[in-house]
C-alpha cells in the first residue's frame, strides 16, 4: 500500500484562492544574471553583476532621489478625461479605469518637490506601466504645472522620461501637450532656471520630440532606447536591418544629443554636483 493515498483527484483550489509564488522575489537580467529583489533595491535597481538597469517607476526614482524619501506630490489626483469618447478594441474610459486599478497610479507621470542632498528640486517622473508611459492631457498638464512650480519658486526642474510617445486615444489633445510643455520650458529657459532631462528606457516619439530633448542638460541611463521613430518603423521604412546599438543611449551620446550617460547608482550624487556647480 502506498504511504500516501490521494483521496481527491485533480486540483481542488478554486482560481480565486490560487496561491502564486511571491511575484518578483528574484529578478533575471537579459544577460541571465539572477538577483534577489531586496539586493536589487539596495543597489538602485541595477544588477551588480552586469550593471543592467532594471525598468523602474516614479515610486522608485523618488525613493532614490529625495532625501529620506520625503517629498510633496503635486496634482496627485488629476485623472484623464475622455474628450473624444475614443474607442478602439475597447473604450478609452474603461482602459483608464482598469489601468488605474492595476497600476495604482492615476496617470503616466507623477510630479513632486522636495530636497535632494539638501537642495530643493522639482521632479516629474513618468511611469511606463501606465499605458506605455504615453503622454496625454494629464501628463502634459502635470508637467506644465510642475514647471510653473519651478518658475514660481526658482527651483531646478528634473524630468525623468520613460515613454512610448503621445497617447493616441487623446489624438489632437495629446499632440498639443508637446506644444504646451515646450512653451513652459521656453519660459523656464528665459528665467534662467536649470532644466535637467533624464532619458530612461525607453524614450521615443512625441516625448523625445518635445520636453525630453529640451534640457539644458540632456542625460540618460546606460543602454536605454532613445529615438524619435521606433526601430520597427525605421526598419520598415528603409527595408534594412538596423546596426547594432542603434538608438541606444551610447549611440545618442556619440551623435551629440546627450551631455553624459549616468549610472543610476551615481544619479543622486552627480545631479547634486551638477546643481552645486551651477550654484557656486
Amino acid at each position: 500500500m502506498a504511504w500516501f493515498k490521494r483521496t481527491d483527484k485533480g486540483i481542488k483550489t478554486s482560481t480565486a484562492e490560487k496561491k502564486d509564488t511571491p511575484d518578483g522575489l528574484w529578478f533575471k537580467t537579459p544577460n541571465g544574471n539572477i538577483i534577489h529583489t531586496r539586493e536589487l533595491k539596495n543597489n538602485a535597481y541595477v544588477c551588480p553583476d552586469d550593471d543592467f538597469h532594471v525598468k523602474i517607476g516614479s515610486k522608485e526614482y523618488f525613493e532614490i532621489l529625495f532625501d529620506n524619501n520625503k517629498f510633496t506630490e503635486l496634482d496627485k489626483d488629476m485623472k484623464s478625461g475622455d474628450p473624444l469618447k475614443f474607442s478602439d478594441t475597447k473604450p478609452y474610459s474603461s482602459r483608464i479605469t482598469e489601468t488605474i486599478k492595476k497600476s495604482e497610479l492615476n496617470d503616466a507621470v507623477r510630479t513632486a518637490h522636495g530636497k535632494m542632498n539638501g537642495l530643493e528640486i522639482v521632479v516629474a517622473c513618468m511611469d511606463f506601466n501606465f499605458i506605455g508611459g504615453s503622454m496625454g492631457s494629464v501628463v502634459g498638464e502635470k508637467i506644465s504645472r510642475a514647471i510653473d512650480y519651478s518658475l514660481k519658486n526658482k527651483v531646478p526642474f528634473l524630468m525623468i522620461s520613460k515613454s512610448g510617445g503621445a497617447r493616441m486615444m487623446e489624438a489632437g489633445f495629446s499632440l498639443m501637450q508637446m506644444a504646451k510643455t515646450s512653451a513652459k520650458l521656453a519660459l523656464l529657459d528665459q528665467a534662467g532656471i536649470p532644466y535637467i532631462s533624464l532619458l530612461t528606457d525607453p524614450t521615443t516619439g512625441g516625448v523625445t520630440a518635445s520636453y525630453a530633448m529640451l534640457g539644458d542638460f540632456n542625460i540618460a541611463e546606460p543602454g536605454a532606447l532613445i529615438g524619435f521613430a521606433g526601430p520597427r518603423v525605421i526598419r520598415e521604412t528603409i527595408g534594412k536591418d538596423l546596426p547594432k546599438g542603434f538608438q541606444s543611449s551610447e549611440f545618442v551620446l556619440e551623435h551629440g544629443f546627450l551631455d553624459f550617460i549616468i549610472d543610476r547608482r551615481q544619479l543622486k550624487s552627480r545631479l547634486t554636483t551638477l546643481l552645486n556647480l551651477l550654484n557656486n
Binding site: M178, S182, T208, A209, S210, Y211, A212, M213, L214, G227, F228, A229, V233, I234, T237, I238, K240, L242, F246, Q247, H255, G256, F257
Partner: peptide, 15 residues
C-alpha cells in the same frame, strides 16, 4: 523615420 534622421536628432530638431 529614417536612419540618418535619427542620427542627426529628429526628435531634438522638432523639440
Amino acid at each position: 523615420p529614417g536612419l540618418e534622421a535619427e542620427e542627426r536628432g529628429q526628435g531634438e530638431a522638432i523639440a
